[in-house]
Simulated assay, not measured.
Amino acid sequence: MLRTHGFSLSSRVILVNGVLFALGTALLAFSPASVSPEPLLSEVVVLLVGLSVMILANSLLVRSMLRPLEQLSHDLDRARSTEPIAKVPVARAGIARQLATAVNDLLARIEIGRKESQLAALAAQEAERARIAQELHDSVGQSLTVVLLELKAVAGRVDADAQLSLEGTRETVRASLDEVRTVARQLRPHVLEDLGLRSALASLTTKLFSERTHVERGIAPGLPELDDHVELVIFRVAQEALTNVARHAHASTVDLRLSKVGNSVVLLVEDDGLGIAPGVRGTGIRGMEERAALVDATLEVTRREGRGTRVRLAVPIGDTTERADGAGEVR
């Protein structure tokens, strides 16, 4: 039950009404006014005026008590329209303060639960990626390797024309095997687990781009310690952004930067390719946005002036200690 100063809300409303009715009764009992067996018009007017005064006073008093609740309801509607849900302002005192405090506590609990469930979903997703990568490596990869060996054995027992045809088939199978291994590596970033974010980003740019594309990397020294799930989100966003550049942008230059800006770690990926079309939000961008939301990060995917695309991920880190590894900038 909602209480303020020892009284529940219903008790306060009943008390106000009781006081008003008691005052009205006292006025009727001790005033010189009286009502005849057959009321005169003047007496009816006095009764109506008294009733109107009591109704008006009751309305003003009850409305003043319920106004903080109406304001709280308005604040809740406004907070509900934000993402994430914002806390409602806390009143100075009274029942509105109790309600606002309770609502904010509930919203905080909901937000914590939502984050925990999202991180659990991220962990489950990565576990499924690892399982699929293992299946690709153990099953599909080994099967393709067996096919290559059998084709090599068959090539030694056929004529020259058939050998030429088999050689083309072997090249196709070999290319498929390389593609399977590449997908498996992308699904499960072993380098991130083994060597950390810095080396993982460097390896990512090396594997995705050929010598025709100039890659610039700038990973600032002394980055703060990051949680594993934060490093994973940064890596996955970088992977998606760089993969899009490698497949679709036809860029000659790619620039990847990771640095600390204020109380955030900022990942920046820029290219001079074709550039993202205005208003486009494909599956890749939605995936990056979902991952950014898991760590309260801000993601911006924009078209650069001139040509090319700019992806900026800012992950808030608060007060953290910096790394003591003393590593220099990676280029």
Score class of each variant (00 low, 15 high):
160 A>P: 00
180 V>T: 07
180 V>C: 05
164 L>D: 07
168 G>R: 14
164 L>A: 13
150 E>Q: 10
161 D>S: 13
154 V>A: 12
147 V>P: 01
137 H>G: 01
142 Q>T: 15
169 T>E: 13
135 E>L: 08
129 R>L: 11
136 L>W: 01
129 R>G: 04
126 E>R: 14
130 A>L: 08
136 L>N: 01
137 H>N: 01
133 A>R: 02
139 S>V: 04
149 L>A: 08
157 R>Q: 09
164 L>Q: 13
142 Q>I: 15
126 E>M: 14
169 T>F: 15
180 V>G: 05
183 V>F: 05
165 S>V: 15
135 E>F: 09
174 R>T: 12
128 E>T: 14
179 E>T: 01
125 Q>H: 13
129 R>F: 15
134 Q>P: 00
126 E>A: 14
176 S>W: 05
178 D>I: 05
150 E>M: 10
146 V>W: 04
160 A>G: 01
134 Q>T: 06
153 A>N: 08
170 R>Y: 12
184 A>P: 01
182 T>L: 07
170 R>D: 08
124 A>Q: 14
140 V>T: 10
137 H>Q: 07
140 V>Y: 10
167 E>N: 11
129 R>W: 11
149 L>P: 00
181 R>T: 07
184 A>K: 00
146 V>A: 05
164 L>C: 05
126 E>W: 11
167 E>S: 15
149 L>F: 03
171 E>C: 08
126 E>D: 15
126 E>F: 14
140 V>R: 08
154 V>R: 05
131 R>I: 03
185 R>M: 09
142 Q>A: 13
155 A>V: 00
176 S>Q: 10
164 L>I: 03
153 A>M: 05
127 A>H: 09
156 G>I: 13
134 Q>D: 01
161 D>F: 10
137 H>V: 04
137 H>K: 06
179 E>A: 12
139 S>A: 10
157 R>F: 05
154 V>Y: 06
129 R>N: 14
172 T>E: 15
166 L>A: 07
140 V>S: 10
139 S>L: 12
138 D>A: 12
167 E>G: 08
140 V>P: 07
181 R>K: 08
125 Q>S: 12
165 S>M: 14
134 Q>N: 02
174 R>W: 11
135 E>P: 00
149 L>K: 03
163 Q>V: 02
141 G>V: 04
171 E>H: 09
138 D>T: 00
163 Q>A: 06
175 A>F: 11
134 Q>F: 04
143 S>C: 14
183 V>Y: 05
174 R>A: 15
127 A>R: 13
131 R>C: 03
157 R>W: 06
129 R>P: 01
173 V>E: 09
144 L>K: 04
178 D>W: 03
181 R>V: 05
132 I>F: 07
176 S>K: 06
127 A>L: 11
152 K>P: 00
124 A>S: 14
161 D>M: 11
172 T>C: 11
162 A>R: 09
149 L>N: 02
141 G>C: 06
159 D>C: 03
140 V>D: 10
151 L>E: 03
148 L>R: 07
169 T>Q: 14
135 E>M: 07
174 R>G: 08
131 R>K: 04
145 T>E: 09
155 A>D: 02
181 R>Q: 06
164 L>K: 11
154 V>H: 03
124 A>G: 15
154 V>F: 09
168 G>E: 08
153 A>G: 02
156 G>H: 06
143 S>K: 10
